[in-house]
Simulated scan of single mutants.
Amino acid sequence: MESAISTLVTTFAKCSRGKESLDSKSFQKLVEKNLGGVMEDTSNTSAVKEMLKGLDDNSDGKVSFEEYLNLIGYVANSMSQRKTGCNPDAS
Rank of each mutant, 00 (worst) to 15 (best):
S6I: 14
K19D: 12
D23Y: 05
P88K: 04
V63D: 03
L71H: 04
S91Q: 12
S64L: 05
S64A: 10
D89H: 15
S26W: 07
Y74W: 11
K49V: 11
G54T: 06
S46P: 09
E66T: 08
S46W: 10
K83V: 10
L52F: 01
T84L: 06
S24T: 10
Q28L: 14
T7K: 13
Q81H: 03
E40P: 09
N44M: 07
Q81V: 06
S3D: 15
S78I: 08
M1T: 12
E2I: 13
G85R: 09
P88F: 01
L8V: 12
F65E: 02
L55I: 08
R17F: 05
N44Y: 07
V38D: 06
A13C: 11
M79N: 00
T42F: 02
V48M: 03
D41Q: 14
S24Q: 10
D56V: 01
V48W: 02
Q28T: 12
I72A: 01
Y74A: 09
T7P: 05
L55Y: 11
S21Q: 12
L55A: 12
L55P: 00
T84Q: 05
S80D: 09
Y68F: 07
G73L: 13
E2M: 08
S16V: 00
V75I: 10
M79D: 04
C15A: 15
M79A: 07
F12L: 05
V31E: 00
S43R: 14
S43L: 13
L8H: 08
E50F: 03
N44G: 08
S43G: 10
E67N: 04
S26L: 14
G73W: 08
K53F: 11
S26I: 12
S26F: 11
L35W: 06
M51E: 05
T45R: 11
Q28G: 11
R82G: 11
V75S: 02
S59Q: 12
K19N: 13
L30H: 01
V9N: 04
M1K: 14
D89T: 15
R17Q: 06
F12I: 05
S6D: 04
E32W: 15
D56I: 06
E67A: 08
A47C: 13
F12R: 01
S26K: 07
G18E: 03
D41N: 14
S26G: 14
G61A: 05
K29H: 13
K29F: 14
L35H: 02
S46T: 13
Y68Q: 06
L8F: 10
V38A: 03
N70G: 05
K83F: 10
L35Q: 00
A76D: 11
N34D: 04
S43N: 11
N77P: 09
K29Q: 14
K62M: 07
F12D: 01
V48K: 02
S16R: 01
Y68V: 07
P88D: 01
V63K: 03
D60H: 02
L22K: 02
E32K: 14
K62Y: 11
K49G: 06
L71W: 00
K19H: 12
Q81G: 01
T84D: 00
T11C: 09
N70Q: 15
T10R: 15
A13I: 12
L55T: 00
S91A: 07
A90R: 08
K53Q: 12
C86F: 13
V31Y: 00
E40M: 15
A90Y: 10
G54H: 10
K49I: 09
S78M: 09
L69H: 01
D57V: 13
